[in-house]
Design a protein around this nucleic acid. Sequence first.
DNA 1: CTGAAAGCGCTTACAG
DNA 2: CTGAAAGCGCTTACAG
Lengths: 344, 344
Amino acid sequence: MAGIFDVAKLAGVSTATVSRALAGKDHVSAKAREKVEAAAAELGYVASASAYTMATGRARNIGVVLPHVDRWFFSTCLLGAENVLIEHGYDLTFYNLGSKPENRDRIFSEFLLRKRVDAVLTIAVRLSQEELRNLNLMKKPFIGIGGPISGARSLAMDDFAAGKLATEHLIALGHTKIGNIGGIGGFDTEFNQPLLRRSGYEAAMDAANLEIKKSWIAETTFSIDHGYRVTKQMLGDPRNAPTAIFCSADEIAFGAIIAAKDLGMRVPEDVSIIGIDDHEMSEFFGLTTISQDVKGQGEAAAKMLLDLLNGPDLGEAVNIEKRFDWPIELTVRSSTARPPATHR
Amino acid sequence: MAGIFDVAKLAGVSTATVSRALAGKDHVSAKAREKVEAAAAELGYVASASAYTMATGRARNIGVVLPHVDRWFFSTCLLGAENVLIEHGYDLTFYNLGSKPENRDRIFSEFLLRKRVDAVLTIAVRLSQEELRNLNLMKKPFIGIGGPISGARSLAMDDFAAGKLATEHLIALGHTKIGNIGGIGGFDTEFNQPLLRRSGYEAAMDAANLEIKKSWIAETTFSIDHGYRVTKQMLGDPRNAPTAIFCSADEIAFGAIIAAKDLGMRVPEDVSIIGIDDHEMSEFFGLTTISQDVKGQGEAAAKMLLDLLNGPDLGEAVNIEKRFDWPIELTVRSSTARPPATHR
DNA sequence: CTGAAAGCGCTTACAG
DNA sequence: CTGAAAGCGCTTACAG
């Protein structure tokens, strides 16, 4: 593995010139630059990242922390971030919180402090103030996706508005009996998405003077099979069944659609289903949903971090509280329609 | 951010002793060790990764390269690798090939050569000999998951055997009209899984003296919606429809199950479906499948890399060709049964 | 057991 | 425009 010295020798210049030429800096003659580039190419020279970091204090590497890589939201968001980072020559080292609390501790009190990363991005992790303090000690920019973090930058959709919009769509179609299958607070998420989305639903129902029956409300985890089970229960009794269900996540909605079919009900003729997310499978299921462009969130957050890193005000109080409201959109497909005639 | 010098001063020893004490080396008195640990804790000292790397040549970091993080196989495998790496204090920096060929080039000719990683793990990417040479230049251990790579270590299931086993299961149940919906060579995978799995199917059919009709064979991408479409086509004509379908991936099988239902067919009473993978949703769909423990593969590969890194023979010819056969297993659920009476 | 010092491979003022 | 040299923050023979 050739070092900078080898390149310098081959090019007949000093290592300083090699460094400047390769970094594309000014004050290097065209000839010197050419010779250096030729020598570097010939030797297959790539500057050592650790030496670069030592000398400059820059790691050209972003740390991404998330709870579960193997789930749609997180991996999609991660993909978005990686896409923009690689474009800018940055590496991405990633930390999966998983289910072991010890891991979380080590990540925030050790891994992230090794100065291997220039900035930190968390996906759906509610940082404790202690964890944030650790990050601040390093004076490294930070941004969290998924919900507000006091004292730090964050980017998230408005969960209340999403729940409200989804419910309003159903109401506008003429539904009056509308159920909500939401997540369980604190389970699938560290923020309060499930509660907020439900509040949006309640607000919309209230505003339309619609009653909410107890049996129309259910809680479950964000998964197809749980959505399936709960929906069967809710739709099983024809006397109490709602004519439309707002599922707080698309994965729940997929389960709901399959459950309705298994009960012999047609979607949307007999029951309307709406979700939140615009999951990669939503198109296939014909699911009407509130889109939140998850990949876009990862991209946007990564860009913000890069801007912070290249900005002038790096150094003093890098982490201030600032909330970025991520836009949502109603995507209408074939899972919602007017209620059955018998219920109008 | 405290440096090693601050710790040394506070503990009243030299930086050499701090280093040794914190690294848990011998030849440090109990008292010195205690003082150092107390000082380090008080200052919240964590050694800089780049300085450590400079001094030792070790990055305690593994590079993982994969085509698409946002898909089940890859993210699950990645999770497995991350789980064991974090346990051993290693970071994981990951590279997503994505759809841009330029990215792939940069990753193999630049990112991976910055000496930021001690070893490289690829998931389902078929390294070119040129790419492998780049890796070998760094003298860093490498292992590829998903298929054989000439000149390097690899870990993969036997795709031929899996296709054969799946088909044999169907044959053992009494099916004689068996279809196969496979992937498209070179599309979802860089190896030849689709072809190999189909060959296994053909071998099993041959061995049982069973005919394969043209209309029983179809190719599609590894996705639910494509599986759905193709299955509807195959099962739509009752005169030519097989009584069982071997899907070369679970995601195809999910689509097949939904398609069968939409056609008014019961699974498994009217048609049996079997897949390969044991995807996280297979349990929900009651899918009989050939399990390949994807997370386990990520874990195993990461462990092998760690062993190589800590082994004695690091240095000379680290990357030799060696294929590890990953075990598979038949997991029988409710999507397969005897063929309908009319077809026995 | 412990410390002084060299060295890891770069970048960047500082002179020239 | 270019080079000699210091310095980034650790680890580790080498002496003692």
